[in-house]
């Protein structure tokens, strides 16, 4: 029981830390990578909340597709490809 509690607190703390770093880090590319990390941690949180359906959706959409969209936008920003 107390191991569960410790894991939940650790997971919540890492969620908040990765969210904070996403907003505060100066490099925008790093911010997007941290956001993808945040999405994967959210997947773990949904699993802990006994919501496997949301965990599946979050892993595929929140971390995968949103990350791809954001990285593509950064590619345009850095001029590596035609907008």
């Amino acid at each position: 029981m107390s191991a569960d509690l410790a894991f939940d607190l650790l997971l919540a703390a890492s969620l908040l830390w990765s969210a904070w770093r996403t907003l505060a880090t100066p490099d925008i590319f790093r911010a997007v990578i941290l956001f993808i990390v945040f999405g994967l941690l959210m997947t773990l949180a949904w699993a802990r909340l006994s919501a496997p359906d949301i965990a599946l959706a979050e892993a595929a959409i929140g971390a995968g597709l949103t990350g791809a969209l954001l990285l593509d936008a950064i590619g345009v920003l850095r001029g590596r490809k035609q907008p």
């Binding site: 907003l23 911010a31 936008a73």
Partner: peptide, 25 residues
């Protein structure tokens, strides 16, 4: 930076989802 605002907006959404499910359970 608009991309950062979009990231912050997504964090807001995730927070709401966590409150919605966590508070109900």
């Amino acid at each position: 930076h608009l991309l950062r605002r979009i990231l912050a907006f997504n964090l807001m959404g995730s927070g709401v989802f966590l409150v919605l499910v966590g508070l109900a359970q």
